[in-house]
Design a protein around this nucleic acid. Sequence first.
DNA 1: CTGAAAGCGCTTACAG
DNA 2: CTGAAAGCGCTTACAG
Lengths: 362, 362
Amino acid sequence: MNMNLIAHKPPTLVDVARRAGVSRSVAGRVLNGGTGNTRFSPQAAEAVRQAAAELGYRPNHAARQLRGKRSRTFGVLVASVGDPLLTFLVQHVDAAAVSIGCRTLLANTIGNPDVGPDQFDYHVDDFARRGVDGVVCAVHPWCPGDRRALVERHPNTVFYDDEQVAGVGCVIPDRREAARLAVRHLASCGRRLIGLALMARSQPTSQEREAGYRAELEAAGLPVVEKLVFDGQAHGLAYARHNAQTRRWDFPVALMDRVIDALVRDAGADAIVAHNDFWAAALMRRMRRRGIRVPEDVAIVGYLNHYLADWTDPPLTSIDPMQTVAGEKLVEMLERRAAGEAGVREGSIVRVAPKLIVRESA
Amino acid sequence: MNMNLIAHKPPTLVDVARRAGVSRSVAGRVLNGGTGNTRFSPQAAEAVRQAAAELGYRPNHAARQLRGKRSRTFGVLVASVGDPLLTFLVQHVDAAAVSIGCRTLLANTIGNPDVGPDQFDYHVDDFARRGVDGVVCAVHPWCPGDRRALVERHPNTVFYDDEQVAGVGCVIPDRREAARLAVRHLASCGRRLIGLALMARSQPTSQEREAGYRAELEAAGLPVVEKLVFDGQAHGLAYARHNAQTRRWDFPVALMDRVIDALVRDAGADAIVAHNDFWAAALMRRMRRRGIRVPEDVAIVGYLNHYLADWTDPPLTSIDPMQTVAGEKLVEMLERRAAGEAGVREGSIVRVAPKLIVRESA
DNA sequence: CTGAAAGCGCTTACAG
DNA sequence: CTGAAAGCGCTTACAG
């Protein structure tokens, strides 16, 4: 017991073997318990297990890995851990990894001015050094980073919401369905002139939404009016930009009045499907200032179902892209390939069905 | 070039040495570049470096670690990565780690129902297996977990906002100063009856705030009235609780009306220092419903300066606990001890000065 | 200044 | 069923 005071070096397999009175080989076979490794007697097994328990033996990860075992670690690339658009995803990828005995190595590709403007390549490299079993790339498509090189280096890579690299696994939130859900809900609440506020109509993701929006309007027998679709891009800067100083995302607040002008004042909208929860929150605030009541005059539906949605006034009805589910799917794909159950180049694209969360804004 | 197609095994030191025409030893000495390891000729160095570059050599992390090098990895324990109270801390601990060439291994101790209710011990164990260089424990003091065992297992541990374990490094946001800043700002805006809304007066952290609040009131020559301090605990459930189903934190919304009754209606407060940004957001919403204008009738100051603060209506003036700075300090402490520059048991307590961020609510 | 050699802790054919 | 032995990729005294 007072051995503890002398050396604090953790016990190794040799220590266990010695204490159990067997060889390192047997101890190893008992403790690693791999497939069909029953090449030891029950007595030996018992002795080894007891010795291991008594010593508090834990296999050394580095040694196993060096010997060719998996690192049981997945790299996760994300523009910024604090990115409000992805907090849930990051959280659930990690949860999914832990539940199969793996870990997550989070890597911010931007937002660390101490190190440099863009660390995509740095992390790809570091992942290689550390021998990750796979990589989740959840960096927004518009952020820099050589995706091809990533996939080259780490064939077992899956993307979230980014189809740039063809033939690679990919999980995508179904934005078409998201827009449909929003419109369906608004129509069922009796809204007739439903507006759609998009950040940039040129983005494929926005086009998907618009398609869903139009499809559902038609299905509901509501008028499809060109004036009811707002394109932020046409009004100048519509993107949230990461501010390296404050490490926050700067939001184009001024644009919100343009949305209200175009959709509510000019087109007479009685409901708006907003680009995301941030747009929705800003819209609601500006509307109140202009004497427009939410939801009485104009109902609002957001997208993301972010923490935020509980705290706006009124609380925000929002479409949840189900990053929970996406996170699980991503890890599942990675794991199947890491375990050799699926070919690495099986580039399936999985769409995740969104969910409507009703609060008070619509 | 078409070698790539044959074997995708990354080049090792032997490959580099062979290509450079030197021994493994020399290659190693050149490439690891440790202290005073200039035991090689300039020519050899040049050849090795060139060979390494050509092959794209990257040292194998596991092998280095096995040979006794640091893992350059820090474990970070947190109740939940998605915990809104700590997102900034997690982000900045990681940024600080990366900027010294290290990584962060995030570990959620709760909020993963797939695995079990509490994974504190599991992660402590896993950190040991992986040989982290140190651990940041940012698990809220009221969450379960054997902190003593953690420190036993990982002597190089530092805590954030938790002084339970004596004699260990600790970084704490200065709540006394936070309350002073809030009161000072409100007083300078002409507020005379400043209320303080606390979650639970029995908590040491709340007591610190109250002390700062009283001290600053006196300094400003304002009345210190007992009725102006609200104790949530006295009114029943005041804690936000983690909901494992939704993986969100449930908030005691109903309590907010009690706050307004006690402080505004009964004590006539013209300003409130709220427990945190969530309380502040909920308070503002309830006040609007009751016809109380913010900030005209009652000014509100939050605490956290969370993402949320930009999106409430009106945007929330808040005290920033400067988790940015805290994250840096935590990593700094860990690193100094990992590098052997400081004794592991140097249990210094660092207080982080907060900062007032003025928006529109006060 | 250089290289042969030992060894970190583990896994796994291989011979007994 | 068991154990001696090789080897994963690296670092580092040690002898030349």
